[in-house]
Each structure stands twice: as structure tokens, then as C-alpha cells.
Nucleic acid binder design. Structure first.
Lengths: 259, 259
DNA sequence: CGGCCGGTTGACTAATTTCAAGCAGGGTGG
DNA sequence: CCACCCTGCTTGAAATTAGTCAACCGGCCG
């Protein structure tokens, strides 16, 4: 959902990937066993034979262009989706038709779990840039969990984490001012990148300023101004969507994360 | 969590209760089979024999005084809790020690699901007034779900709904102004009461103005002023914590729920 | 009785939004 | 190839909403 200080990631996620270099990261047909997302995604503490079974129900290799929907609010719910590459946003429409972004999702994360309760998706999911996702048909998946308690546990944990992350977002919206929100946001992205063995200090924001503001409960103008100010204060370097975090500690202070 | 326009409740929830009038609503030892919460809580689409099994693991009859905690953030997670009577709030502390209320919970609802992911509760739950809860040890419960697919499905749905409700709260905090937030809040409580066959128009707010403001991202003063204004405009009648909704439609308009 | 807490109300302040204008980059069509 | 336009972003100035500070009220408890 994007808003967690803790990394759920595993530093050695790519150890296994190295062992399987025959599977190119852009080979969308690669199996769960070889997937470079490793345990970030679903397969956790499963025997290889179990993973094979899981493999059989996962529909791999759905490719999305920027702006394509994975699913839309009110669509019948049948699957959850693991993001293999690219970035995705989820959003809902308010009563008066405005978009409210409820989360940004990174590779290895799972979207669509809010559709379970009413058998209908409650939000829409859309690719921020070209992306690839694995579809996990929920009915079959659920059957599998009955045979594989670890898999069930893992999915409970995924959902539970989603709840926790939404709660953090609630807290941010309720208590933090514009500066704190944006600093927190940047640090969150940084942490998530680190969890994926990507640079924690240099990265490209996959969303527009408008989307950032929408997610953080701010106007574009406020986002723009605040980022400019951070750059002027040399907390970050800013070049369009490219961000370098220069002064992590000061940024943490601005975010009000420690002290 | 409190913030859903839809009722998950069932109007005939008390039909069964009537059949079992030997079980007084204040008899905390009553079994799940007879519990007047009926399907609002967990037992859904289960055979009576299954309910008996569920019954065996549920620890009924924990009584709480106002201010007592059900669990605290950072406590080891071992159970989720169904509220049998009374009202409960959940909250987390921000980095600088302030309380952020993340939800108000009504009888029949379940708290503690955010503790699953890290085996530690991520929030605290506290009784707003005297209350009674049923403890559901999660490990045993999970074992049960492996044998009872319907029970598993129901729990997935509960968690999914929690996610949906947090998303609605996010939208409220991000997009609505003070008036809209408070009107929405009142209507939500009204709907939840209706779902429990209680009056949709006359009820007592179980929380203080401060707690309301905290939950809605507003100060006490703003809450107080806005409620006073609603009363002056005769949208509601207000007497301390007692509220009567006088003009539902106008209130809906103010909340920006239809149009 | 005094003090404290929760709630209300008023006056002032400050933060963010709103409105407005301008700029840069990318794509399209003449 | 250039002009034009559109979109996304930035920046400034004015407007507005909610927050802050402060005083006061009433009920409850020691």
C-alpha cells in the first residue's frame, strides 16, 4: 500500500535468483520457484513441491501498459494480483466522483485483497507505467491454503499488514502537516526500495505530483512547493521525478520519525 | 472500525435469540450457538456441530471496565476478540507519543486482526465503557479454519472489510472538510445501530468529543462548534452525548453522501 | 468547598487551498 | 522543421478553513 517504515523484505532475496540465472528477469513465464521476487511475494516457507502446486494455479505474464487497469471497483472479485514489475496505484472514487488514491504498490506486493469481503472489488488498480502482474485466482488459492497451513498463515499476514499500513496512512493524514507528510513519503519509498535491494538514496518517483498530493491529502501546489523547499534546503536533490536523498537524518527529523 | 455506509448486519439476527430466551443477553457464559449477535460475529454458514467446535476454543465472558485494555500495542499477538457488549476504541501512538484513534468498534465486531502480520499487536484496544468480549485464540482458530472452509472464508472477509473501512476513513480524512466529516460520522453510527436493530435516529455517542475529533482528524473545538451548528440548524438534537437525527436527508447532503 | 475534567464559545493566527500566471517538455500537424 | 498545444510542474498572492489560545460553564469527586 506504501506507507511502512519497516521492511518486509529479505536481503538475500536474490541469492536464489543468482542460482537460476537462466531465468531472465524479463522472462514473464518464469515460475514462482525461480521468481526473483523471492519471498517478498507469496511463496514463503513452502516445500518446493508445494510451490509447484501454487505455480499451477498462478496465471503469469499479464503485461500492462501505463494507464491500464488490473481491475476496477465494482468488478466481480475473482483474483488477487502480485506485481512482478512496474508500479501500480489503487484508488476509489468519492461520492462526488473524485479520485482518492489509497495506495502505491511496488514489485512483489499484492493488490486486490479488498475485494474479498463483498465478492466485488472496492477499489480500482491501475499501472503507473508499464508493468507485469501474476494473477492468483482466489478460489483455487483458498483451496490450496487448506492443504498448506503456511500459505494460509502467510496470506493472513499479508492482509494484516495491509490493515496496518492503512492505519499508518490514517495517522499521517490525521496528524502530520504537509512537510512531515512529504518527508515521510520519501523515506517510505526509500525504505521500500532498500527492501528490494535497490538504492535507498537515488530513485525515480513513479507517480506524478498530482498523484502524490492526492495520496497524501494535499494539493499539487503544496507538494511542489514543499519538494522545492526540501531541495533548496539541500535535504534532497530534485530533478523532475528523480530524487536523491542527501540528508537522511535531517529528512527523518522533518518527517518527525525519530527525535 | 466504524466508517461504513453499508450495513453488514442482518435484520433477523435476533430471531434465533428469541428462540433461546433462556439465555439472557447479560449471561456472558452463553455459547456462540445462542449468542444474540448471531451472524454479525463469526459463526456464519456453519453447521451446528461446527459451531460447537468453535465454541470450545472461544474464551467467553471477559468483562472490561471503562478504560481497561483488551490488548496493547507491542503485546504478543495470540488472539482476536469479538465484542459482545459495549464499545471499544483502537488506537496507536505516533512517533511523538500522541494518540491516534484508528477505529471505534461495536458489539459483534472483531478487533485485533492487525496483530497477525508481525505476531505483535500494532495497536491498542480499550473499552470506552464497561464491555464484554470473547477471546478467540488465533492458533486454534486457524486450525479450525483448515477443517471448515466456510469459517476461513468468513475470516478472510472480515479482514477484507477492515481494509475497506480503513480506506473509507482515508478518503474521509483526505477529501472531506470538518462539516462533512462529522455528518458522515453521525450517519455511520446511525447505520451501524440500524444494523443491530437499534434506533437509527436516537442514540448515545459512546466517545468523548475529544475522541471524536482525534478519530476524524479535527480538534475538540471544531467538533464542538460543528455539532452546535448542526443543532442550531435543527439537523440534529443534541443533549450532551445523546443525539437525535432530525433531518436525515439534509444531514446526508451535508455529508456529501448523495447528490 | 475546591479542583478537575469535559464541553462550549469567542477572537485571533497560521497553515494550506484557491486562483492565477508562467514555464518546460513532448507530441502533433501544418 | 517549426509552430502550437497540452499537460505537468512551479511560483506568487489572496482567500479560507481549521487550529490555537483563552475564558467560562457545569457536573463530579475527593
Amino acid at each position: 500500500m506504501l506507507l511502512a517504515t519497516e521492511h518486509s523484505g529479505s536481503k538475500n532475496a536474490d541469492a536464489k535468483a543468482k542460482q537460476n540465472e537462466h531465468s531472465c528477469p524479463h522472462n514473464h513465464a518464469v515460475s514462482c520457484l525461480d521468481c526473483r521476487m523471492g519471498k517478498i511475494c507469496l511463496p514463503v516457507a513452502l516445500k518446493d513441491s508445494d510451490i509447484v502446486e501454487l505455480d499451477e494455479i498462478v496465471k503469469r505474464g499479464r503485461i500492462l501498459q501505463k494507464g491500464d487497469h488490473i481491475f476496477r471497483a465494482a468488478d466481480a472479485f475473482s483474483s488477487v494480483y502480485a506485481i512482478r514489475s512496474g508500479y501500480v496505484k489503487t484508488y476509489r472514487l468519492t461520492e462526488d466522483g473524485e479520485e482518492q488514491i489509497t495506495g502505491f504498490y511496488f514489485p512483489g506486493e499484492v493488490v486486490g485483497m479488498d475485494g474479498i469481503s463483498k465478492s466485488k472489488h472496492q477499489s480500482s488498480a491501475k499501472a503507473l507505467e508499464s508493468a507485469a502482474v501474476c494473477e492468483i485466482p482466489f478460489g483455487q488459492f483458498q483451496n490450496l491454503t487448506l492443504k498448506m497451513p503456511h500459505l494460509q498463515t502467510h496470506f493472513f499476514q499479508l492482509m494484516s499488514q495491509e490493515i496496518t499500513e492503512e492505519q499508518q496512512l490514517v495517522t499521517l493524514l490525521s496528524k502530520k502537516n504537509a512537510e512531515e507528510r512529504i518527508a515521510t513519503f520519501l523515506l517510505t519509498i526509500s525504505a521500500r526500495n532498500a527492501a528490494r535491494s535497490m538504492s535507498a538514496t537515488n530513485f525515480r518517483l513513479p507517480m506524478s505530483r498530482t498523484e502524490m498530493g492526492n495520496f497524501l491529502g494535499l494539493t499539487v501546489e503544496t507538494v511542489s512547493r514543499t519538494l522545492s523547499r526540501f531541495a533548496k534546503q539541500h535535504l534532497i536533490d530534485l530533478n523532475q521525478k528523480e530524487v536523491s536523498i542527501v540528508e537522511v537524518e535531517k529528512l527523518r527529523l522533518t518527517a518527525n520519525l525519530d527525535s
